[in-house]
Every structure is written in structure tokens, then in C-alpha cells.
């Protein structure tokens, strides 16, 4: 891996130690987003900003509003109020459920979306995505026959065919075994590091946020209750060396969630 792996609290290779990317204006900025579904407030004045090459983890319990936030950033849903700095065309989106045509092959799926995105060099893009996701030998296989992990890789690749400066991933690792998940993060971190892509992802996994993020945003009941580096989160959760996950749950409970 090109960049030092973010490590647990106190480790020498913390994300901010490796230089949290905060150069110039943010690549993506959302302010005061609110979203209601009937009486339920899914988002209450949530703001997020992310810089070039930054990895942002959006955490929170079920129903916290993570998917809603990413959907608004992706332009799939419209916020009731608030602003998003980028148009949806400049944002790559990878939904939680793989959005692929099972009857088409890996290459055909990539080719279709590359064409729809208006990629200047369709075949070149397909080749590049196959190479980036390590799926060259699966190119001619139909998606239905792929394992969940490979399907998720194609899913991510399709989010990238338009070479977007910002990539949104909704629980990208949820369906993967630890080995596959590790490969996914290698790929995503390389993307941020080498291409300067800004990546926002949602996760339930505290460890994932800790290891693979420069910034963590915690949502609960539609509100942003924390935003900062993993180290700052540890500080806020206040758990010296014990079980971080348990401490995080306690942290939420203290705030009434």
C-alpha cells in the first residue's frame, strides 16, 4: 500500500500524522441539510465538507440518516433545505446493493455505463477499471455468476467509470469477508492517494472508520453529533485502551441514542 495504514489510537501511523489532506477549498461541501419523510426527520441540519484525497467515514446506528445523507450528496434525493456544492454528475455513487445487470458480463456492464457517462475512450476506460479492480480475468463472466465480493468490486468500478473527483460509497464493506474487505480498502485508499479522489463512505464498523478514514462524521437520529479525526473521536469517546466499539456504543447512549 502506498500510504501508511491508519492505525489504532496511539499508533505512529495515524491518518492525520500522515498528513490529513486539507489543501485549499473543499472538494465537496454540504451545509445544513434537512430531509423529512412525513413526520420523521431523517436529517436535521447536517453539514459535511471533504477535501481532495480525503477519506470521510459517516458512522451511526441504523436509521441514523447515513444513506439519506449520501443519497442527497449523490443527487438521488433532494434535500428539503440546505446546499450541496457539487452537481451529481461530478460525483460517483456506489449504492449499498450492487446495481448491476446480472445477465451482462462484467465488461458489458462497465462498457454500458462508460458509454452512458460519455467517457471519451470507452474501451480504455473499461480496461482501466478492470485493471484497477483486478477483474481482468473475470471480464467475460456474467455478473450473476460472480461472488458477492467480486460483484461489489464491479459495483465500485461502475461508480468510477466517469472518473469523478468525489466518490460516495454506502456501506461498501458490509457484504464482504475480511479478506475481500481488506482488498477493497487497499483499492479505495490507493484511489484517494494516487488519483486524489475524495471518498465519503458510510459504515457501521467502528474499526473500519478508525483505520480507513481521515475524518469521521457521526450521525444519530438525523443529527451530526461528532465530526473530527479518528483520534479526536477516540478522545471524545474517552476509552483508554479498552474495547473501542463498546466505548462508542456507550458514547452514543450518553447522548441519548
Amino acid at each position: 500500500m502506498a500510504r501508511p495504514a491508519p492505525a489504532r489510537a496511539g499508533g505512529p501511523a495515524r491518518a492525520e500524522a500522515a498528513g490529513r489532506p486539507e489543501r485549499g477549498a473543499p472538494m465537496l461541501e454540504a451545509r445544513d441539510l434537512t430531509k423529512r419523510f412525513g413526520k420523521r426527520e431523517a436529517l436535521r441540519g447536517v453539514s459535511v465538507s471533504a477535501h481532495r484525497g480525503e477519506l470521510v467515514a459517516v458512522m451511526g446506528p441504523n436509521g441514523a440518516g447515513k444513506t439519506t445523507l449520501l443519497s442527497i450528496l449523490a443527487g438521488i434525493q433532494r434535500a428539503d433545505s440546505g446546499t450541496v456544492s457539487r452537481s451529481s454528475r461530478e460525483v460517483g455513487w456506489v449504492p449499498q446493493q450492487p446495481a448491476l445487470y446480472g445477465k451482462l458480463t462484467v465488461a458489458e456492464n462497465l462498457r454500458l455505463f462508460a458509454r452512458l457517462e460519455g467517457a471519451p475512450d470507452v474501451e480504455g476506460t473499461v480496461e482501466r477499471m478492470l485493471a484497477q479492480t483486478g477483474l481482468e480475468d473475470r471480464a467475460r463472466e456474467r455478473v450473476v455468476r460472480l461472488s458477492g465480493g467480486n460483484r461489489q468490486r464491479v459495483n465500485v468500478a461502475i461508480g468510477l467509470v466517469g472518473s469523478p473527483p468525489v466518490l460516495l460509497l454506502d456501506e461498501p464493506g458490509a457484504a464482504l469477508d475480511p479478506r475481500q474487505r481488506e482488498r477493497l480498502w487497499e483499492f479505495v485508499e490507493a484511489l484517494a492517494e494516487e488519483e486524489g479522489t475524495t471518498v465519503l463512505y458510510s459504515t457501521h464498523d467502528v474499526g473500519e472508520a478508525e483505520h480507513h478514514a481521515h475524518q469521521v462524521v457521526v450521525l444519530a437520529d438525523g443529527e451530526r453529533i461528532f465530526s473530527g479525526s479518528p483520534a479526536e473521536l477516540e478522545g471524545a469517546v474517552g476509552d483508554p485502551g479498552g474495547d473501542f466499539e463498546a466505548a462508542f456504543v456507550a458514547f452514543l447512549r450518553e447522548r441519548g441514542h
Binding site: 443527487g75 454528475r89 455513487w93 449504492p95 446495481a99 457517462e117
Partner: peptide, 13 residues
């Protein structure tokens, strides 16, 4: 069913 709808209507079609 293939979840592709949202991808398509995000500005592609």
C-alpha cells in the same frame, strides 16, 4: 430489481 434505476436517472438518462 437490479438496482440500476437510480444509477441511470442520476443524470445519465
Amino acid at each position: 430489481e437490479e438496482n440500476a434505476f437510480l444509477r441511470l436517472v442520476r443524470g445519465l438518462v
